[in-house]
C-alpha cells in the first residue's frame, strides 16, 4: 500500500477543523473544535486534534491553513484578524510539538490559498489555470491563481478583495475605510438589507425566508448578488480569470444569488462583445476545502507555490 495520507488543519475564527485526507482528496476522518481565545490554547488544540487523528490513520505530513496574513516561507502568521497572533512561528512550534508523534513535515498557508489549491486539485477548478476564488461569508476574501500558480503578492496580501473601494464615501467598514465592497456584497450586507425589523438576521435565516417566498429576503439576495456582480466585473477587468469560484456561506444560496450576480457582471464588463468572459460557479468542496488543500500542500501535490 503506497497510499499516503496527510493531515490538514484549518484554523478559522470560530472553529478549528482537522482532517485526515487521502491522495484523492477524500476526507477519511475529521474533527472540529471551537477556536480557543489564547495563542497557546489554539496551538494546544491543533496538537490535540492531530494526535487524535493519528490514532486512527498514519500520516507524516501536516498542512496548516490559517486565516490572516501568512508568511509561508518563514512559517509564521504575521497577523490574524480573530486570533491574537503577532508574528507567531506556528510552523516551527507545531513541528517541534508533533515530532515525537511521527509528523516529519509541517507547511503553513493562508486559508483561502489552501482552499483554492484544493478546488484546483480535486474540486470545481480542475483543469483550469487562471482562477479566482471569492469567498463570500461575513466579509469577502479570496485567492488568485495565474498559470497554475497561486499569486500571493509582495507581502503575501493578495486576494483582499473585500476591501476594494466599491462606493466612494459609502458604508463604514470594520477596516476603518468607507465604501468597501464587502459592505455591499457579503453576508453582513445581506443582514443589513433585512434590518427593517431592527434585529439582524443570519444569512441562513434569510436564505430560508427567501426560499419560503419572503419578498424582502429575495430582494436582499438580489441586491447583494448585484453588488457582487459589479465588483466581480472589476476583478475581471484587473485579472481576466477563466473561472471565478464563489465560496463561503452565502454561496449556499446558489442561483438565488448568482442569477443577479451574472446579470450585473455582464452589464459592467468592458468589451464584453469582443472577449471571452470567465465562467462563474460555486465551489465544490464545502467547508473542508481549507483542510483538504492544506493536506495536499503538505504532501507536495498542489501547485508549486
Amino acid at each position: 500500500m503506497s497510499q499516503r495520507n496527510a493531515i490538514g488543519v484549518d484554523i478559522g475564527g470560530t472553529k478549528i477543523l482537522a482532517a485526515t485526507v487521502d491522495e484523492t482528496g477524500s476526507v477519511l476522518e475529521q474533527i472540529a473544535v471551537a477556536t480557543p481565545h489564547s495563542v497557546e490554547l489554539v496551538q494546544a488544540a491543533v496538537v490535540q486534534s492531530v494526535r487524535t487523528l493519528l490514532t486512527r490513520h498514519e500520516a507524516h505530513d501536516l498542512g496548516v491553513a490559517a486565516a490572516g496574513l501568512v508568511d509561508h516561507h518563514t512559517g509564521r502568521v504575521r497577523f490574524a484578524p480573530h486570533i491574537s497572533w503577532r508574528d507567531e512561528p506556528i510552523r516551527d512550534n507545531l513541528a517541534h510539538a508533533l515530532r515525537g508523534d511521527g509528523i516529519t513535515s509541517v507547511t503553513l498557508e493562508n486559508d483561502a490559498n489552501a482552499a483554492l489549491c484544493a478546488e484546483w486539485r480535486f474540486g470545481a477548478a480542475r483543469g483550469r489555470d487562471h482562477v479566482l476564488l471569492v469567498t463570500v461569508g461575513t466579509g469577502i476574501g479570496g485567492a488568485l491563481m495565474s498559470s497554475g500558480q497561486i499569486m500571493r503578492g509582495t507581502n503575501g496580501m493578495a486576494g483582499e478583495f473585500g476591501h476594494m473601494q466599491y462606493a466612494p464615501d459609502g458604508r463604514p467598514c470594520q477596516c476603518g475605510l468607507r465604501g468597501c465592497w464587502e459592505q455591499y456584497a457579503s453576508g453582513r450586507a445581506l443582514s443589513m438589507q433585512m434590518q427593517s425589523g431592527g434585529e439582524l438576521l443570519t444569512g441562513q435565516a434569510i436564505l430560508r425566508a427567501a426560499n419560503d417566498g419572503d419578498p424582502e429576503a429575495q430582494r436582499a439576495f438580489f441586491m447583494v448578488g448585484q453588488a457582487l456582480g459589479l465588483g466581480l466585473a472589476d476583478l475581471i477587468a484587473a485579472l481576466d480569470p477563466e473561472l471565478i469560484l464563489i465560496g463561503g456561506g452565502v454561496s449556499m444560496a446558489g442561483e438565488l444569488l448568482l442569477g443577479p450576480t451574472r446579470s450585473a457582471m455582464s452589464t459592467r464588463l468592458v468589451g464584453g462583445r469582443h472577449r471571452r468572459v470567465a465562467d462563474l460557479d460555486v465551489v465544490a468542496l464545502g467547508p473542508a476545502a481549507g483542510a483538504i488543500g492544506a493536506a495536499e500542500l503538505a504532501r507536495g501535490g498542489a501547485p508549486s507555490l
Partner: peptide
C-alpha cells in the same frame, strides 16, 4: 489572464 486581457485597469 485566462483570455489574454488582464490589467484593464482603466475600466475599474
Amino acid at each position: 489572464g485566462g483570455f489574454g486581457v488582464a490589467a484593464e485597469i482603466g475600466h475599474l
